[in-house]
Design a protein around this nucleic acid. Structure first.
Length: 510
RNA sequence: GGCGGCGUAGCUCAGUUGGUCAGAGCACACGGCUCAUAAUCGUGUUGUCGCGGGUUCGAGUCCCGCCGCCGCUACCA
């Protein structure tokens, strides 16, 4: 039995939750659920990033304190994750006192170790934005947002001496080829490091909404260097030695490709500077892209232009398709690591094909025939069923895929068993035959296939798995079972009541 | 500009180190079945593998050039 610590990025509370957030969070959740099913001890952390100038500004606009604003917005994320059945073990908010403790502890350690120095940051500053820009970000020498002239400003900042970690980072990545996945993203990180690293300013004096710098009261940490530390706060770094060392560094960070540099360069260097090991694995996912126009008509009100992913609320999908169908689509449609097209039509197509026609209909037809030929009592499976090999192959494929963070492949393997079960029914046509041992063997084996499918889809669709489990007459819940032990052929006991029930996934007409 | 990636059937995409690699799913056509959510099962069609050269006995698979799209290029959560 292993330990599995998985994190999502913490989401910035300046933004409402959207499908992109849901994509990352559902994937992390499925991985957490998979490892629980595999018998690992799991800690799954998500949360929100609440400091920084943008939150402070938004709060001011609404006439509330930054904390009040964060309190208000964070609920939208928490509600979204509740709706999506996200099984996080903790929810970290960077405005919490426990986070301040850990940030000050970690960065204090880095400071003590001599990797932080005071210097002057000079930059081009837009007064309206209250932010700095680089030369090439300017448009005609003016602020790209406000079109106003920028002024040369300087600010005393503490700098993290990232430049000292170039060689150490390269050596570390050399020794840990699995540290960033997929490899294309690893190469991007390496290329960036090889391009030369500059020291980075990690504090601000221009705002107060942040974690105070312990050794200099006039400064707060710049949001990123506060945010990254959440991964340590969640496990009690600086507070509970036994606890955090039990989870670190065997952590799996799931991140979007846009924040690769922070997680694959800044963060490992910070860990090194503090004297702890860098995170074991960073898994980088791509983006869902929205090109289709129909999405706007169906899911977004009053949209008259191309729809952006950030305009689609997770709840718009769960209300339309259901929670599990939404989770399934996010996991099944796009390989983790690459970008993928997200369309309403694609979602409907996959819903009908995979969920309604294949899985839902399989359960329905089996339950009906068990009702008419077996008096509603599910028979035991046939040890010699041709489905057995299909099941073993599906299990092996799915297990391997989950292990290497490939949910879409794991689900494809699982569906191969559903297909085999449908084909096996066609081959035997139990509905044409008189009740008896032969019919029992065929239907028992179909039920056994459904039992195994229920277990294999548990990480993706926990509610559906539980419902299948219940309808085929099994006690408890699939989440209490263990894979691979309980997916061995022959686990269905037989002699238990099978319930038909309403369609699991009603076919959609649109 | 530099670095990197992508361009394969109508659609979404797989294709290790070059030799059944021309594939899968969806869609489509035909046939079977009628237990099932007009579901399911079987068979089949579709492609100059972005363009042009080259290396090779043989190249989506390697090399060169070109066209198109995209990402990163440091303080942007």
């Amino acid at each position: 039995m292993g330990r599995f610590y998985v994190t999502t990025p913490i989401y910035y509370v300046n933004d409402a939750p959207h499908v992109g957030h849901a994509y990352a969070t559902v994937n992390a959740d499925a991985m957490a659920r998979w490892h629980r099913l595999a018998g690992d001890e799991v800690f799954f952390l998500t949360g929100t990033d609440e400091h920084g100038a943008k939150v402070a500004e938004a709060a001011e606009e609404h006439g509330v304190t930054p904390q009040e604003w964060a309190d208000r917005v964070v609920r939208r994320f928490q509600d979204a994750w509740t709706v999506l059945d996200i099984s996080n073990d903790d929810f970290i908010r960077t405005s919490e006192p426990r986070h301040r403790v850990t940030v000050q502890e970690l960065l204090g350690r880095i400071h003590d170790n001599g990797y932080i120095r005071l210097d002057t940051y000079r930059g081009l500053y837009c007064v309206s934005c209250e932010d700095y820009y680089t030369e090439d970000q300017l448009v005609d020498g003016k602020c790209p947002v406000h079109g106003r002239p920028v002024v040369e400003m300087e600010e005393d900042n503490y700098f993290f001496e990232l430049s000292k970690f170039e060689d150490r980072l390269l050596a570390w990545y050399d020794e840990h080829p699995e540290a960033v996945q997929p490899v294309t993203k690893r190469n991007e990180a390496l290329a960036f490091i090889k391009g030369g690293l500059k020291d980075i300013s990690i504090t601000r004096t221009s705002l107060s909404w942040g974690v105070p710098v312990p050794w200099d009261a006039g400064h707060v940490f710049y949001v990123w260097y506060d945010a990254l530390v959440n991964y340590l706060t969640g496990i009690g770094y600086g507070v509970d030695e036994a606890r955090w060392t039990g989870w670190w560094p065997h952590v799996h960070h799931l991140i979007g490709k846009e924040i690769l540099r922070f997680h694959c360069v800044w963060w490992p260097a910070m860990c090194m500077a503090a004297g702890i090991d860098p995170p074991k694995e960073v898994h980088v996912h791509g983006w869902l892209l929205v090109g289709g126009q129909k999405l706007s008509k169906t899911l977004v009100r009053d949209a008259d232009g191309p729809v952006r992913l950030t305009e689609i609320a997770p709840q718009a999908l769960t209300e339309d398709f259901g929670v599990d169908a939404t989770r399934y689509h996010l996991l099944r449609d796009v390989p983790l690591g690459s970008d993928g097209e997200f369309t309403y039509e694609g979602m409907v197509t996959r819903y009908n094909a995979d969920l309604a026609n294949n899985l839902g209909n399989l359960l329905a037809r089996v339950a009906t025939v068990v009702g008419s030929k077996c008096g509603g009592t599910g028979p035991a499976p046939d040890p010699g069923s041709p489905l057995r090999a299909a099941a073993e192959e599906a299990v092996a494929g799915a297990v391997a895929a989950w292990e290497r963070w490939a949910p879409h492949e794991a689900l494809a393997h699982t569906w191969s068993l559903i297909g085999a079960a449908n084909a096996e029914l066609e081959a035997n046509e139990p509905w044409k035959k008189d009740p008896g041992p032969e019919v029992d063997r065929v239907l028992g084996s179909a039920l056994e296939a459904l039992r195994i499918v229920a277990l294999l889809v548990t990480p993706a669709m926990p509610r559906t798995a539980t419902e299948i489990w219940r309808r085929i007459g099994l006690d408890g819940s699939p989440e209490e079972r263990r894979v691979p032990a309980d997916v061995a052929w022959g686990g269905y006991p037989g002699g238990v009541p099978v319930e038909k029930g309403a369609p699991l996934f009603p076919r959609r007409k649109d």
